[in-house]
Design a protein around this nucleic acid. Structure first.
Lengths: 211, 211
DNA sequence: TTCTGTGAATAGGTTCACAGCT
DNA sequence: AGCTGTGAACCTATTCACAGAA
């Protein structure tokens, strides 16, 4: 089984969403159909799917259910994930209440915050905890993924606590590069940079139309 | 002046942030230093900067202020942008109050919502308007960028209104591919897909450590 | 005929390595 | 010596085009 690139992973997420939206009576789907839905080419779709073994049928297409569960396997979505969130601001609130996470098996089980005024407040049943107890809590029972929604100044410090607590995957919304050991994966979502990429495109018919 | 790739644009955003954080007495910065800050290589930095003309000085480095304003030029950040947001949910609230946007010249000037209970509510001085008047408002005075934070079912419909209202750039937080004309740029931020990319990495020491 | 699987060709992005300023 | 600018090499991703199975 070959190496799978980051852009392929991103597209697999997309394909999975489309497969799950298919009418239940529909049995198979062609690479061409998936390509139209996802805004790529059929060759691209076939290459992506080939990256983890071939099981489409020539002349027919791909069996929808098999393909979906195969993609879930690749993306590691057959299991549940324990997620904690640090930073009980507006962005934290938006993410805690985002239904798409739980649907995919990402369960936010704790929220941490530094501001004493926020500690103890409940967000739909989840009591906001003191970030001071984060490291201890992580050592007591471990979590899979952490989401950082703190102000930028606090982010690296929090990342340190997470790493020491054994967290191996971090989704970071603070606009900074986090220094972490080799075996920890970080994805940074930088809202301002997203807008900047749009202003770049406006300034010169640049990157073009990319979805 | 050559074509600039999407990944270069993303890195330029990063570089700009670092340049702005430099101590004011610091005059120049080397590609090596920028590389360390941004987690790339010096060769990569030099290539990125070369994409829009050479004005570093051999043996010295790049003049910080010049470089910063040149990058601002490339990214189209010398001007102000008028931005509207559609969908006054928690994510909308998080973005409206995010200080990083205004700092960069992205001014959210109106918020639209479908739910009548929300219409008229004020978010730090901004009165939430009926999405029914969106298209008319856009035609009266145009905006540069729109941010969609509606539920996924409403997103395509809103995108249609935006396009008819002359908006040429859309930042989309609904997990769906928006169909828009060629001359409209869309960037979709898919939160669930970000987590899926992390679960993929956890499932197999996959993509590796990418910042 | 339809639609996958895949080698080969192409394009695109990154790294190397070194000439040339300061 | 220090550090940029840049051709060339390299590596990775995408597209082409067609053989082969249903």
């Amino acid at each position: 089984m070959r190496k799978i690139s980051e852009s392929t992973v991103r597209r697999l997420s997309l394909y999975l969403r489309f497969l799950e939206q298919c009418a239940p009576q529909k049995i198979t789907i062609s690479s061409d159909e998936l390509a139209r839905l996802g805004g790529t080419t059929s060759a691209q779709v076939r290459r992506d799917l080939l990256a983890f073994g071939s099981f489409g049928r020539r002349g027919i297409g791909y069996p929808i259910n098999d393909l979906a569960s195969r993609i879930r396997g690749i993306l590691g979505l057959q299991r549940q994930y324990k997620v904690v969130l640090i930073g009980a601001g507006r962005m934290g609130s938006a993410l805690v209440h985002y239904p798409g996470f739980r649907e995919r098996g990402f369960n936010i089980t704790a929220v941490y915050e530094r501001d004493p005024k926020q500690i103890g407040v409940r967000w739909s049943g989840l009591r906001i905890r003191d970030v001071g107890s984060l490291e201890r809590d992580l050592k007591r029972d471990s979590v899979d993924i952490a989401i950082i929604t703190t102000p930028v100044e606090a982010a690296q410090d929090v990342a340190g606590k997470l790493v020491r607590g054994g967290v191996k995957a971090i989704l970071n919304f603070a606009p900074t590069k986090l220094a972490v050991p080799e075996d920890v994966v970080v994805r940074t979502v930088n809202m301002a940079a997203e807008l900047e990429s749009l202003s770049f495109s406006l300034a010169r018919g640049g990157i073009g139309h990319r979805e």
